[in-house]
Design a binder for these strands. Sequence first.
DNA 1: CCATTCGGTTGCATTATTAAACTATGTTGC
DNA 2: GCAACATAGTTTAATAATGCAACCGAATGG
Lengths: 158, 158
Amino acid sequence: MVKRTSLAGNECPIARALDVFGDWWSLLIIRDALIGRRRFGEFQASLGLAKNILATRLRSLVERGILKMVPASDGSAYQEYVPTPKGHGIFPILVALRQWSEEFDEDPDEIATTLVDREKGKPVKKLALYSQDGRMLSAVDTALKFRPTAKRTRRASA
Amino acid sequence: MVKRTSLAGNECPIARALDVFGDWWSLLIIRDALIGRRRFGEFQASLGLAKNILATRLRSLVERGILKMVPASDGSAYQEYVPTPKGHGIFPILVALRQWSEEFDEDPDEIATTLVDREKGKPVKKLALYSQDGRMLSAVDTALKFRPTAKRTRRASA
DNA sequence: CCATTCGGTTGCATTATTAAACTATGTTGC
DNA sequence: GCAACATAGTTTAATAATGCAACCGAATGG
């Protein structure tokens, strides 16, 4: 009854996303999945989290359509966890998180990797937000507009 | 000793960002702060979280340089929490989360708001990743390159 | 076969979250 | 100036989530 308050059904799309993968480990599991890790043991070794936690997270991510289970690619009887299109859609979020650390981290020397374009090997550009007519937008150039069609549910939120 | 494993000192910039605001509430507090909410009571009313949790989160976000406390703008003796530049830098992450929900949510009708450019009132474009020479990149067009200068710390991670 | 790896589950201790009550200032109406 | 209320928290106690280690069955490897 006093369980962690769910963000599902919230009107804010940010809260809705966090409801799916806003916990301590899910995004890191998704990160691993997007760079090609797919076996239970791979995730566990890479992340160093408890196996029961990993099991519940993987189950949740499969339930919510971020990952899917497929027969192992090496012909063994085991299963693999691979990202769905919905899972691949999380890539820009990971890029945004990465770029924030690259720009604002106190100890950038501790960051081990750079995201580069595979073809040229050069660092990618910063993600940027544009208007439909091509102007680059910062936060103050934007506003939130209420959608008239939205069926209200719980909290106003944003 | 068995406390939640810290992600600080991790080599992965994504993990480092999550160490700062990767919990259940911080990003929502930051979202609120970026749309102009600044008083303790405003956050509490908007988010509906327990006041002790809000207090610890605000303290943490101030410590980590995401928010800063300033005298209240209305001349009262109270304080306000306002985003620092480091806090404003989180905006693209929120946009990425929003756009993911807009694209993949099962119940998009429950989403109350759209992000528009203030000048024209039109929805913003999708965040996109570009190479330095202007090619649009998807996840498979990118790679992770190890930075030779990085001083290794703990886990390989990514 | 037999030992080992893989992919979990179970039980227990610790930590985090929650709601509610309480407190200390600050503000407002009179 | 003072009672009443608002603000911004802290404290307390209950419940839920997390972490760790031990276990377990199926799959694999030799």
